[in-house]
């Protein structure tokens, strides 16, 4: 009996794993079962998570705390939040469903405004800064590097001297490539088109190839589970 109980759950895991892999051959009922189990389990998990991680700690606990601390204004603000959240339930009826526009409008508006500054900082300012200088403050177009190359013209020195300028030119080309509203006759736009595509394609190819190994590791991990962990449990329980 004990053998069965230690073996049961790991075997379920192995069977589900194999069920998913059958999908690679073709769609079949075994995969469909695993897929529907996963959908159900994940939604079930999410329901409980909403309760444990949002409604309890973010709504009920703080509200009661604020009430007992005498911070009534805050408590009322949180209750209003809860009520606005409840407006989503108006979608059950066609007639009242427009009420759900309020929570939608608030979330969309708030996050749209809230994200502007971080987006600017991380995507624009920081990236442009990194195109001007290396993290240690050296200039991307470092004339010293060229000087070093002319003093000692080796391949390595040449590469380290031109890497910075290549990055700068690459970034500029890509930026110009994505202009929408300048006419194609514009000489800058037209001349930068093909070189920009070269940079983009080299980048995409490199990034694709680089991720390959990580993805294979995932599959190796699953096989490790079956061929090392599960087989161990199987042989120990059946053998001993």
């Amino acid at each position: 009996m004990e053998a069965i109980s230690t073996l049961f759950w790991p075997t379920v895991a192995v069977l589900l794993t194999l069920a998913i892999y059958t999908f690679l051959w073709e769609d079949n009922p075994i995969y469909k079962v695993a897929e529907h189990i996963f959908t159900g389990v994940s939604v079930g998990y999410m329901i409980a998570q909403s309760w444990h991680n949002i409604i309890m700690p973010k709504l009920i606990v703080p509200t009661t705390n604020y009430f007992s601390n005498g911070r009534y204004l805050l408590a009322i603000y949180f209750i209003i939040g809860g009520l606005i959240g409840l407006l989503y339930l108006s979608r059950f009826s066609e007639k009242t469903s427009w009420l759900s526009r309020y929570p939608i409008a608030i979330t969309v508006g708030f996050y749209a405004g809230f994200k502007i500054v971080p987006i600017w900082m991380t995507n624009v300012s920081k990236q442009l800064n990194a195109t001007i200088q290396y993290p240690n403050g050296d200039s991307m177009l470092n004339l010293k590097m060229f000087g070093k190359f002319f003093d000692n013209p080796t391949w390595g020195n040449f590469i380290s001297a031109i890497n910075g300028p290549i990055i700068v030119i690459g970034v500029l080309l890509v930026l110009i490539y994505f202009f929408f509203s300048f006419s194609n006759d514009n000489i800058v736009v037209r001349a930068s088109r093909k070189p920009a595509l070269v940079v983009l394609m080299l980048g995409f190819g490199g990034s694709f190839g680089y991720t390959f190994m990580a993805r294979i590791s995932l599959f190796i991990g699953r096989m490790n589970y079956i061929f090392s962990d599960w087989i161990e449990i199987l042989t120990t329980t059946l053998g001993g």
Partner: peptide, 29 residues
């Protein structure tokens, strides 16, 4: 975007001469 590209140019050129107005005040890290 065009203005940012111009700023980038100015920043790079100034940076060669160790002037860091742009990187310090306008396009921060």
């Amino acid at each position: 975007k065009a203005i940012l590209i111009v700023l980038l140019f100015i920043g790079i050129i100034l940076n060669i001469f160790d002037i860091d107005i742009i990187t310090k005040y306008i396009l921060q890290r």
